[in-house]
């Protein structure tokens, strides 16, 4: 109980740091000094202290989008185990609730985008729902592979047995699951090769374009919400990639947090070494992730 609550708190506090790490890695690759590691905190803090500007076409739905996003992230953290350290809430099929909570958040962000009546935001919303609909089966199949490999139906129990039941006897399963999760992580968090978080050409973006009209505290919440979402996905991936399972939940959680930051470094490396995919290629990659996850299910003996 105690380590789980602390794990959730760690997620709440450290999530924006992930963005800082990614940016620092990219800066190092580009030979720049880069922004301070804590810049995302400053950004969020500054935005939360500002006023806001709203378009007259918007309604409460526009203002609800960021709020629901953060709420889903906060509650989702309660369902996320940190490696071998169990989550605060554990039950069979809990990963479905986690995935669908993020779905609720996405639903409201998409509605907020449509509420502005802008062609650009509509375009982003349209792409977001299309790609996330393809990412969802990949994610569920990856979870199903873990369930089949470990015989456990809750995220915490399955993650707790990743080392003994998945890594040791059948490494290919773990590799495939991790690969599928990594692809979904990049897609859901709007990173290269799916989406370019740095571009300022609204036409090319997916996620960023949906929040063009948010300002002040709303935009601060958007940033924090997407940081939480990134933490959740990195946590899932790190749980599979860092198979350190000891008797001590503190040690497990610590290893998982290190793993999460390693994932962030990996994201930075990918962003520095790859270009964005053409939009028509994106569905192919996502379907590929689904196929990898399905293969992982079938490979489990």
């Amino acid at each position: 109980m105690m380590p789980s609550a602390v794990g959730m708190l760690v997620g709440l506090v450290l999530a924006p740091l992930l963005l800082g790490v990614v940016n620092r890695v990219k800066a190092v690759f580009a030979g720049r000094r880069g922004q301070p590691l804590l810049q995302p905190y400053r950004d969020i803090g500054r935005l939360l202290r500002k006023g806001a500007v709203y378009s007259p076409t918007t309604t409460w739905v526009f203002r609800a989008g960021p709020v629901v996003g953060v709420a889903a992230g906060v509650v989702g953290l309660a369902l996320l185990p940190l490696g071998g350290c169990r989550a605060l809430v554990v039950f069979s099929g809990d990963f479905m609730l986690l995935i669908y909570l993020l779905g609720t958040a996405r639903f409201f962000v998409v509605l907020a985008a449509l509420d502005t009546g802008s062609a650009f935001e509509g375009m982003g919303a349209s792409r977001e729902v299309a790609f996330s609909a393809l990412a969802e089966p990949a994610l569920l199949l990856a979870m199903a592979a873990l369930v089949r490999a470990t015989g456990m139906r809750s995220l915490s129990d399955a993650m707790g047995k990743v080392w003994s039941d998945v890594w040791l006897p059948s490494m290919p399963v773990a590799v495939l699951v991790a690969a599928a999760l990594a692809v979904v992580l990049l897609a859901e968090n709007a990173r290269i090769p799916f989406d370019d978080p740095n571009t300022h050409l609204e036409l090319t973006m997916i996620h960023e374009v949906m929040v063009l009209d948010h300002s002040g505290p709303d935009f601060g919440l958007v940033l924090y919400g997407s940081a939480l979402k990134g933490w959740i996905f990195a946590g899932l991936l790190a749980g599979v990639l860092v198979p350190l399972r000891t008797g001590s939940p503190w040690l497990n959680a610590g290893a998982a947090v290190v793993g999460i930051f390693a994932v962030a470094v990996g994201v930075g490396v990918v962003e520095s070494s790859m270009a964005r995919l053409r939009l028509v290629r994106v569905p192919q990659l996502l379907v590929g992730a689904g196929v990898m996850a399905a293969l992982a299910v079938l490979l489990v003996r």
């Binding site: 006023g51 806001a52 500007v53 378009s55 007259p56 076409t57 918007t58 502005t116 935001e121 609204e202």
Partner: peptide, 12 residues
């Protein structure tokens, strides 16, 4: 307590 403004939707 802050300034809340209103302006048309940003259309690039």
């Amino acid at each position: 307590m802050r300034e809340v403004g209103s302006s048309p939707t940003w259309d690039c």
